[in-house]
Design a protein around this nucleic acid. Structure first.
Length: 283
DNA sequence: AAGTTCCCCTGTTAGC
DNA sequence: TGCTAACAGGGGAACT
């Protein structure tokens, strides 16, 4: 479940390892991984390309190459592994690892960049370079990143005032604000003292200022802790996060840290949702 | 325009 | 103990 902090950790680790590297071979064994091109064409177009620049928008990873931009979304379980070479690949566990590697990119120094995704939900798109990477087709519907300093509470309030859906559902809408997933939506609303069930149009400008401050505080804190590892998240091949130890409501059973009221679990728009009925008021 | 439902996947967990 | 059903979840398509 990589959300903005986890995607940022993955991207930073990759940039450290493969910035400037050239792709000399490409093998895609799960064709639907490629969202906008046939897999064979995808493979051909990547040959000779270099990983020049690394960007993140919401939960998307953007690799600027020479003639293309590669846009990847890890969804729930996608991972990039950087292996020293074929020997290390051959030594992988066939059931736990090899079986779930759906793409292997050979680099000019002999290393292998592998994409592993147990549930095959992740996607990659390869596009001709646009003038601005914000213009990439895969990102057309993605709103401003939650950590974008140009994002204001005023525009959130404007967008939200015509929406009757629960505020939690709106926080998960990537066209509203990008980068928040199920874990941080719960944590942000706890920090803001707002019930996830509150209809979005019941919130005023002060509420949105509050939500935006809490969003930035929590996402930044989580990034500094290495992200949240609840199930399987890891970056830099094996490194796990630490923010799961600081979660106040998400996936927690038992008493609220602040007031002792039992944390409630419910389902909002099909998503498991945790909140404190005392600390978080419905408006 | 806004909201709802279904689908994609497979490993893990809950329940009988 | 062993089986099955439910669950986890982001985003996109199709629908009302």
């Amino acid at each position: 479940m990589p959300e903005a902090p986890e995607v940022a950790k993955v991207l930073a680790a990759l940039e450290e390892e493969i910035r400037g590297a050239e792709i000399v071979s490409a093998s895609i064994t799960h064709p639907s991984l490629c969202s906008n091109l046939p897999a064979d064409e995808f493979e051909v177009q990547l040959i000779g390309e270099h990983f020049n620049e690394f960007h993140r928008l919401g939960k998307y990873l953007i690799f600027e190459m020479d003639n293309h931009d590669l846009v990847a979304h890890l969804r729930m379980e996608g991972k990039f592994l950087v292996l020293s070479g074929q020997e290390e690949f051959d030594a992988l566990d066939p059931i736990k690892d090899k079986k779930h590697i759906h793409a292997v990119f050979g680099l000019s120094d002999g290393r292998l960049l592998c994409y592993k995704d147990t549930r095959k939900f992740g996607r990659m798109g390869l596009y001709d370079k646009p003038a601005d990477w914000h213009d990439l087709p895969a990102l057309a519907k993605v709103g401003k990143d939650a950590l974008d300093q140009n994002l204001t509470a005023e525009e959130l309030e404007q967008k939200a005032k015509r929406r009757k859906i629960p505020v939690k559902t709106l926080l998960l809408d990537q066209s509203f604000m990008a980068g928040i997933g199920n874990i941080y939506a719960d944590e942000i609303l706890f920090a803001a003292g707002i019930s996830p069930l509150t209809p979005a149009d019941h919130l005023d400008l002060e509420d949105w200022k509050n939500i935006l401050v809490c969003t930035r505080m929590i996402l930044s804190r989580s990034y500094s802790m290495g992200g949240t590892t609840l199930r399987t998240f890891a970056y830099g091949n094996h490194q796990q996060g630490g923010f799961q130890n600081e979660l106040k409501v998400h996936s927690r059973k038992g008493a609220c840290d602040e007031c002792g009221t039992p944390i409630e679990q419910t389902r909002i728009n099909g998503r498991s949702t945790w909140y404190c009925p005392t600390c978080q008021k419905e408006k």
